[in-house]
Simulated assay, not measured.
Amino acid sequence: MSGLWVFVCGPSGSGKDSVIDAARQALVGRSDIVFARRMVTRPVQPGSDHDPVTAPVFAELLQAGGLCWHWQAHGFCYGIASQYADAVRAGCLVVVNGSRAHVNSLPPSPGLRVVRISTDPERLAIRLAQRGRDSDRAVAERLARNAAFTGLPADCVIVNDGELADAGQRLTDYLTGSAGTAAAACARIRR
């Protein structure tokens, strides 16, 4: 039996963490849908949701096979622990807060789905400035970088310009509907 990976991607400031958290809360108790924790070589900051690790610890995990997915973005290393690959092999749908560049480099796979979270550029600029993590120049670079990913293929696009609850519900519906159906079909095919 095999499950499904669902990578949720979008620009910094689009609200990925918040949308994922809303879906996570709505799906409490669903053992077939697992929300992966990212490891990042960056300290935890307000509004971020990851497990901080040092660069040497990250390198050790990578070398020892402790990461099933890994990528670099904005000067940091990101990784997903290998235990989540075990969950996919067991038939679970595993949701990953991913990188657009990383996902864009992956070959198409029947076991992989992509959800893109987007927001209008003006709102994105305001959110990036409000969270206070980046300098004005870094915000401008992040906004300019978005142009490279406007055509990122996705199985589901969620526009997060309104109420967070609406965007969270769209992701919940996708995970329990289209992606859930795909995971079940994937599991049946591979039996």
Rank of each mutant, 00 (worst) to 15 (best):
H70I: 10
P107T: 13
A154I: 05
S99R: 01
A36Y: 05
C156N: 10
P52N: 10
G132L: 09
S48C: 13
A36L: 02
F35K: 03
R133V: 14
V8H: 04
V157C: 04
S99C: 07
A85I: 00
W5S: 13
V139D: 15
A55V: 14
V8P: 02
A55I: 15
C9P: 03
Y174M: 03
L61Y: 07
L93H: 08
T150P: 13
P56S: 02
A90I: 00
M39D: 01
A138G: 14
A87P: 01
L27S: 01
H102R: 07
Q130L: 08
S109E: 13
V88P: 02
A182K: 12
H50W: 10
C9I: 11
V44I: 15
I117Q: 08
G65F: 03
R137S: 15
V6T: 06
D161Q: 04
I117N: 00
D173K: 04
C186S: 14
A22Y: 02
V115L: 11
D120Q: 14
P46C: 02
T41H: 09
T176A: 03
V88F: 02
A138F: 10
T54H: 05
V28S: 11
A55K: 15
K16N: 09
P153T: 11
Q169F: 02
A81E: 11
P110W: 08
A36I: 03
A87R: 05
S82I: 04
C68W: 02
V95A: 01
S14E: 04
F76E: 12
R116A: 09
A23M: 08
F149N: 05
D166G: 12
R142K: 15
P52R: 08
V28P: 04
I33H: 01
R142A: 15
Y84P: 04
A185L: 08
V114P: 10
A87K: 04
H74A: 11
G75S: 07
T41R: 12
L152W: 06
S135E: 09
T150I: 15
G151H: 15
K16P: 04
G79V: 13
S82T: 04
F76H: 14
A59H: 10
C68V: 06
L171Q: 03
L61G: 01
R100Y: 00
S99Y: 05
G168T: 01
T119F: 10
V19E: 06
G151P: 13
N160I: 00
T176G: 05
D155Q: 14
